[in-house]
Nucleic acid binder design. Structure first.
Lengths: 213, 213, 213, 213
DNA sequence: CATGAATGAGCGTTCATTCAT
DNA sequence: CATGAATGAACGCTCATTCAT
């Protein structure tokens, strides 16, 4: 049987996915046409549809990767001290936001916003929410359990707030451009604020060396 | 006097605008078709185009109102004490976010995100940014000038951070639903955080009665 | 009875007609909208339709004037010597062609060409043909009867040829611009050619002073 | 080999082009709708747009053929004596004019006249002018270089005059019908006139057998 | 496995003309 | 007499997806 090896199939899938990624980044979700993706991939319509059922599947697979990376960014701070782990995570998000329009984040935001009425996209939306929220919460909770953080507010509420802020920073970065919104300054403000609720009393705010950048 | 009175014309304009508003809220910007709007308004294509040049103008006029209301929300705290004025503003935004999917905010976010590559929409984007940022900054600055706020961080940076957070809260509210993201809790967290950077040292955080809700 | 005087009505009609003329010259027949004409006339839709049943009637009345002027250009040479009368006529046409895009001629050509399939426009087309042809023919025939012209070819054929040439010169003037097609040179060539068939043998062609410019 | 052969694609392109040609001839350029062309071709909208980007491209490709044929008509007289070559060319144009309303010429004239204000069509207009003018000029110049023609007027001027006349003859043929304007007679007149300026003194005009019909 | 030609409902917008006031 | 708001059929064009080869 001429069954193509698994790796060959995977390679083709990957090729197509990367081509789709380039097109999505360049044009956005709605504006990207299957014709564009087919052309960018150097394949035929049939060839692309053979591996992915439609434009949405293509995007969903692509975005799955982003989630996985995001999660890894939130984990990984196994041995690290809690406040340094938070700092790492925030710095990582900062870098992503600064590079927002080269990544898939704007496309995801577009996809979520445009599709907010569609039953089918709800699932993904929920999953994204839980994944990001969970990652942040774990970060905070492990610090609290270690006794480093002594939050006067439930960590769930703090995690949700951080998540909102990050989403907002991304949104602003996307629509206004990273330079216009002074990402570094915002990052500093967030750090100070977070410290004040996570470690109240400690190093009364403004210390330079304590900031996790 | 066959010329229809100005008030009648305004009434018709308003009718059409409200019909368009209902359609945009129901379907979103991209998914709303002129056919929908024409049907909802109970008029003809020509009748609608007589008052508004195209779909975008219809939306822009609609969104202009939202801006005006937002500004009014940020102003108005003339005689109020600074921290109470901030509280009022935040509470107002909270209410808006809680009601996000009944308003035009999701449509605006969609319009901005989808149109991020289009030269023409950039202008609106910039204007929105400046208006919202300006409103928040004025609020903080007047408190600082009054000596009530003693921020250890430039107010511009704080204003931008608040703006990001609000955008994020709206975004989350839109895509995940207000109930899922515990708006009240987030609001409390933001309050505490803001106080710690605006009035450091004062009432070491957690006091209940001091919070401006 | 408040019957408005005939002259008042005529004045209004004329106002509208001139406004329409300006719009047609500026935009062409198809591209001119009734909205344009109404705006240019400073009146209302109703006001314009009260005097003219539709766009076509407006144009037809306008074009009637041009015909009348054209005819007058062809007549008028009563006392003049035949060859001078021909020269006058040709010079007049030259001037019109040179000024083609400021006049209604392009609009007429457009109207005729576009409407060549419409029964209703046929009539006008026929009338124009007969009027122009008749004018030229009379010019030639009176010279022949006076014995000044001794055409070796039937004057009808010559008249038709002149007419074709003039139409072509107009057409070229309209689409390529008068400067590109060297109207003066063409005019000279036509003069020489015409002389050779109207007055064969006389002043073997190239004489300068004999040319009717 | 699922890729359809080049010849098949060409055949389809040709099918569509011919269908468009029939519609254009029947209705004219402006009045022809894509719906008409789609119906005439027996295909779908998508099917037509797959091969031609828009109505204008369809027309331009069609008209390209006419130019090519025109040029061939003007060339080709390589070995022939100059006056015969001119005769051949004129006869060819006569035939075309006689058949004007079965061809695309009226559509081209309409396209040029209606589009005289549009920047984009200007290019085509210029190209047409240069191509036709160039063809006629070459015809005359080669006769002059051979010494057969001894024009007393610059050949450029004569070429432009001939071009104008031909355009006029076409125009008249289109709007008034070929029979009404006695094409044969006009052709004879043009021949006589042309001879008188190209070969002055020779065979003092009226000879029958010398005329190149 | 792979191709790419083909589909067709749907889009936003225009404009000559009418007629209630 | 005069107004101008209102009509609605028709326009050129797009694009995710299918399926005969």
């Amino acid at each position: 049987m001429p069954k193509v090896s698994e790796t060959r199939k995977d390679a083709v899938r990957n090729d197509i996915l990367e081509a789709a990624g380039r097109v999505f980044k360049r044009k956005g979700y709605e504006a990207a046409s299957m014709k564009d993706i087919v052309a960018e991939s150097g394949r035929s319509f049939g060839g692309v549809y053979l591996y992915y059922a439609n434009k949405e599947q293509l995007f969903l697979e692509l975005i799955g990767r982003v989630y996985r990376e995001m999660n890894e960014s939130a984990e990984g701070g196994e041995g690290t001290a809690p406040w340094e782990a938070v700092g790492r995570f925030l710095r990582d998000q900062l870098a992503r936001a600064a590079d927002a329009d080269n990544g898939l984040a704007p496309v995801l935001y577009e996809y979520l916003i445009v599709g907010r009425k569609e039953e089918r996209r709800m699932k993904l939306i929920g999953e994204r929410h839980d994944a990001v929220f969970g990652a942040i919460e774990r970060l905070l909770r492990s610090g609290a359990e270690a006794g480093t953080f002594r939050p006067t507010i439930p960590v769930e509420a703090i995690a949700l707030t951080v998540m909102s802020f990050l989403d907002g920073m991304f949104f602003e970065s996307i629509v206004s451009g990273p330079e216009r919104i002074r990402l570094d300054d915002q990052f500093r403000v967030l750090s100070d604020m977070l410290r004040s609720v996570l470690m109240p009393g400690e190093a009364s705010a403004v210390t330079e060396e304590g900031n996790p950048e």
